[in-house]
């Protein structure tokens, strides 16, 4: 951090007009828009064509392709970043993404519990049961390693994929080594499974607190964290 300020110039008065606008100002037409417009047209045609091709193979594939496109589009447009939601409170003091992620947790929980409860009531297997994961030392170590990795790698799972799409070479390199890490992890999986994960509890909160109790407690916890995040930011605002 020795070279923070790379260039200093003294001028007599500040150039900036005294207003606080948040919008992108109209850019000077320096470069032609034609190459990107062409790229955009080609990409749109290719995305649609690939979707149509998948539909002929298996409609399920084209559905997932469409869902993926929507997720990528939303993540990029909102600059939604799960990494920042966990990193920024302690690093830069900002909690706006933390609060947004908590809002997502709250809304999605309510939707999921409705779907789960409906399946339970009709005696069907609970949708998403595969995501009620075992809690073991592997969760602890995995979370810790992932937390370190996502901060220095500049993005988590979804963030890395999103930034690959945005054209960041660094995130492309991250993706390669993410996949290698997963492969090494799957090779080692036997050991972890037999010695650590096997027999670890999978706790579905409704089994402990009942359906109504579980969603109520979940929303109270999310609400409390939201208030905490908000106070944290006000406390650090004068940074």
């Amino acid at each position: 951090m020795s070279e923070t300020i790379s260039e200093q110039t003294e001028i007599t008065e500040s150039k900036i007009p005294r207003r606080s606008s948040s919008r992108t100002t109209a850019r000077k037409p320096k470069k032609s828009r034609v190459p990107l417009a062409l790229a955009l047209a080609i990409v749109i045609i290719a995305l649609v064509a690939f979707g149509l091709y998948l539909a002929t193979v298996d409609p399920r594939l084209s559905l997932f392709w469409l869902i993926g496109l929507c997720f990528g589009f939303i993540l990029q447009r909102a600059r939604f970043c799960f990494t920042a939601s966990l990193r920024d409170p302690t690093l830069t003091g900002g909690t706006s993404l933390t609060k947004a992620v908590l809002i997502a947790f709250a809304i999605t929980s309510v939707g999921f519990v409705a779907i789960q409860y409906n399946a339970y009531r009709m005696g069907l297997p609970i949708p998403g049961a595969g995501y009620i994961l075992p809690i073991s030392l592997a969760t602890v170590i995995g979370g810790f390693l992932f937390g370190i990795g996502m901060v220095i790698g500049g993005g988590c799972g979804s963030g890395t994929l999103m930034r690959v799409g945005e054209g960041f070479h660094m995130n492309m390199l991250v993706l390669v080594f993410f996949i290698i890490g997963l492969l090494v992890g799957s090779y080692d999986h036997t050991w972890w499974q037999l010695n650590v994960i096997q027999g670890a509890p999978r706790v579905h909160l409704p089994d402990v607190f009942g359906w109504f109790g579980a969603i109520t407690i979940q929303l109270i916890v999310i609400g409390a964290l939201y208030i905490l995040a908000d106070r944290w930011e006000s406390r650090r605002k004068s940074l």
Binding site: F82, T83, L86, V101, A104, F105, T108, Y131, L133, P134, A138, T139, I141, G142, G143, F144, L145, F146, G147, I148, G149, M150, V151, I152, G153, G154, C156, G157, S158, G159, T160, M170, N171, L173, V174, L175, V176, F177, F178, I179, I180, G181, L182, L183, V184, G185, S186, D188, H189, W192
Partner: peptide, 24 residues
């Protein structure tokens, strides 16, 4: 990038997911 990727990959395998699957 190399360290971040490896840590995330191995960690995600241990926890059976990333910020999406194992968190959200």
């Amino acid at each position: 990038a190399i360290l971040g990727g490896l840590f995330m990959g191995y960690g995600a395998r241990l926890a059976a997911g990333c910020n999406i699957g194992a968190l959200y």
